[in-house]
Amino acid sequence: MGPSGTGKTTLLKLIGGQLKPDAGIIRVDGQDVHRLGHNELYEFRQRMMGMLFQSGALLTDLNVYDNVAFPLREHTRLTESVIRHLVLLKLQAVGLRGARNLMPAELSGGMARRVALARAIALDPEMILYDEPFTGQDPISMGVLVKLIHDMNHALGLTSVVVSHDVRETASISDYVYVISAGKVVEHGSPKDLYHSDSEWVKQFMDGLPDGPVPFHYPCADLLDDLMQTEQAK
């Protein structure tokens, strides 16, 4: 967790091998992601990772059914009837079996993310990376997503890495939280530990306070000086 622009999505892209770190090593399941060649990385992603993007990233020229079937058709030699069974089961898990013929443009933001979640678990990965899954959602959609992420994590035995600035929702389903700011880890621990943190910065973030170590005002000159300068300029 961390405020906007602090490097959370960058961190996910580093874990997924979409960006290369300037220094250091990123290991997933004991494998240094950035030492893998192009084909090895793709094979590794296929076996290990699913990712839920903030926008859903559904393919806009395919309907809901074909979006979920896409990774299965690309990476397996399953027959269409088996793929149909799998797709319908994945869609059932996210509650959108009835929406299988809709196009992405016909879905709400929350529905698009649920379809993206069904697609992310299509190949039964061992880990799912979630990029801001709750941003911009109404309370019902947010509740649905929180429940889905929590239930799938336990039902499928996944490792889930959730990047978010929605404190309450993320804390409610997390085992362990890292709070980052300006690209650095400023605190980590269980959600309970973080709520009782001594750090003023963490308190401000967890409680959503408008002013504190992160100031309300963008750094600038004194207001009176600024006003006087304007008068003098006139």
């Binding site: 992603r45 296929q46 699913g50 993007f53 559904l58 806009t60 896409f70 990774p71 690309e74 990476h75």
Partner: peptide, 21 residues
């Protein structure tokens, strides 16, 4: 548009090479 809506990144993470597809 596919790039700005993260469809190309999404393909990469599904292990589908956007260059090929």
């Amino acid at each position: 548009l596919m790039k700005s809506t993260e469809q190309l990144s999404g393909m990469e993470m599904m292990a589908v090479d956007p260059m090929k597809y």
